[in-house]
């Protein structure tokens, strides 16, 4: 069992994706199947960008053992009022500035879902959101 934590800065797109890159490096060193690495990293990247785009600050916690990779993103931010709607493809609340940088197309959550074996999202409006992504290694 290994545990890693990386902080995520809200609003700083210059660093968006750095935690996912770290995660990718770790998984490659652990000889995880490249196809699983791809799924995990894509899901982590989307979730990381979500924190950068919407929240004030957050943390990504990664737990790895030989059976699964579990990623938990906890942020302090506005929260998601209607998770069901946020899961729909193309739905986005991103600001024009964020969209101009090439983010916020409303593909984030659906993309996370399709790249994870288990996904749970809990959110409290005005407080923040917790996203938990699990991918299993033995299939």
């Amino acid at each position: 069992m290994m545990h890693f934590e990386f902080p995520i800065e809200g609003g700083n797109f210059l660093k968006a994706g750095s935690a996912s890159s770290q995660l990718k490096k770790i998984l490659k060193q652990l000889n995880v199947d490249p196809r699983i690495i791809k799924r995990v990293v894509v899901a982590a990247y989307e979730a990381e960008v979500n924190v950068v785009a919407h929240a004030y600050r957050g943390i990504i916690m990664i737990d790895i053992d030989t059976s699964r990779i579990c990623i938990q993103l906890v942020d302090e931010g506005p929260g998601i009022p209607d998770i069901g709607r946020a899961m729909q493809m193309g739905f986005s609340t991103a600001s024009p500035e964020v969209r101009e940088m090439g983010f916020g197309a409303g593909m984030g959550l659906p993309n996370i879902k399709s790249n994870s074996d288990e996904l749970s999202i809990t959110s409290e409006v005005g407080k923040g959101t917790t996203v938990k992504i699990t991918n299993y290694l033995e299939q």
Binding site: M2, Q29, L30, N31, D65, T66, L137
Partner: peptide, 10 residues
């Protein structure tokens, strides 16, 4: 990869 075997690699 640090090791072929994941537990070893960890």
């Amino acid at each position: 990869m640090l090791d072929e075997n994941m537990a070893e690699a960890m």
